[in-house]
Design a protein around this nucleic acid. Structure first.
Lengths: 241, 241
DNA sequence: CGAGTCTTTGAAGCCCTTCAAGCGAAGTGG
DNA sequence: CCACTTCGCTTGAAGGGCTTCAAAGACTCG
């Protein structure tokens, strides 16, 4: 537990990995001090849960590093993953009473955690923060709506191609593993096959079959369980459109 | 064309039907004057389009009355409806360069239209408005994510039941047609069968078959093409969960 | 190594789509 | 006023893609 007492707290924000990308980016030195005082760092292990769907909304958080999944369940217990959260993303539901989805760490994760009440108060008093949060929420809404097209109108092949391309894009800035040949790139999937199925609204068997098919067609290579090499980005893009 | 010249404009906002529900609700008299000056009323007929997917984001708007659909297209031309906009809802993409979806009127519609540049400037200078917009965007994001569960994990029957219940809920405050018996209620669908299919990620035939099936099972009655009576709300809710 | 978990592969079945045709209400023109 | 067209909706039949059920293979970690 890395809780900090404001009085003698180090100012973590100064050296924060997402200082320039998260919603706190536009705050000045003084504001950062205040925000630093109400937040605390927390480390979460893969599989650990941070927020519970339906719970009273007590916490909000910034992702500093690692990847988390946001998910909900149908009545029959089928999971639907609503999205993934990457570094600098914001988690939780400010200005609301209940958390609308569960949040679970997929990798080793570090977040900057706030009591929602503290955060709400701070946000209302600092329009620059609210503005950043608004921009981020609007972007997230755009992304979520694009995902609706995937869920509603794509077949399994298109869904997996889209997923691989988007994952590669979102992983890029984090890993910074640029390859000289523009085409080939290896990514480390943050999800199991089952979780990929839950993202795409498919079953694990269908996902596995699509992986095999793409491998046989030379679209991808599968060096390890979690590793995927996009061997033919162009054709993947044509499939995903 | 109901464009207003600021100098001699009537203040429409004072008597606006959504004055207390839209994002302008918290503004004071002076702020409303300013907002009134940069906005104008516009009437749109069913089938007319207000925003085009991919276009430069020039306009944003508040819905005053009527219903619109937000939609996008897959590469093969299949439509996916991303959501419906009802009175007091906000349309368009502030602080962004391109409109991420098309917007088309389903009924006779009246909106309060703003040049995006004007609106962005006003919003940045009036945190109360930005706060309202943030709350609305967060709510919309929650709703959109719930819809992902529908698209990804529900079968045709569950999808249609969910759609009918949500439509009944969102239509309620507008029509205010409360029936003494808590159970029965007739709604006027704002969508054709094809459009319902596009909302639910189904084909028109499947939607039609589900309507027929629900009618035969006594869940609903279909007094006219657009009319639906929810005869057994409880059972519909059990199906939709 | 052996237990457990994750993944792959096969076979059968079902739900939804696709293709096709018919129905019914509204509108048009002779 | 009634043929004729049009448009939205319904219904049927066949096919396909994904799911379900089942089992075996592959990797991980004590």
């Amino acid at each position: 537990m890395s809780a900090q007492h404001p009085s003698n707290a180090v100012n973590f924000c100064q050296a924060c990995a997402v200082r320039n990308r998260a919603i706190c980016a536009d705050l000045d030195r003084e504001e950062i001090e205040l925000l630093n005082a109400i937040g605390r760092r927390k480390t979460i292990s893969p599989g650990e849960q941070l927020l519970w769907e339906g719970d009273e909304a007590v916490f909000v958080a910034n992702v500093i590093h690692g990847i988390l999944k946001l998910s909900t369940h149908s009545a029959e217990g089928k999971e639907q993953i609503l999205g993934l959260a990457y570094p600098s993303d914001f988690l939780g539901r400010p200005f609301g009473s209940t958390t609308p989805y569960s949040v679970e760490a997929l990798t080793e994760v570090q977040v900057c955690l706030f009591q929602r009440a503290d955060f709400d108060r701070f946000a209302r008093e600092h329009p620059r923060l609210e503005h950043k949060l608004l921009e981020r929420t609007l972007t997230e809404l755009d992304r979520t709506r694009r995902w609706m097209l995937l869920l509603g109108r794509m077949n399994a092949e298109q869904k997996l191609a889209s997923f691989l391309l988007e994952t590669a894009d979102r992983l890029q800035p984090a890993t910074c593993s640029f390859v000289a040949e523009g085409d080939a790139s290896v990514i480390e999937l943050p999800l199991t096959r089952q979780q990929i199925a839950d993202v795409l609204g498919l079953t694990i068997e269908t996902v596995s079959r699509q992986f095999s098919r793409m491998k046989n067609e030379g679209l991808i290579a599968i060096p390890s369980r979690r590793g995927v090499e996009l061997r033919d980005r162009q054709r993947l893009e044509v499939i995903a459109i």
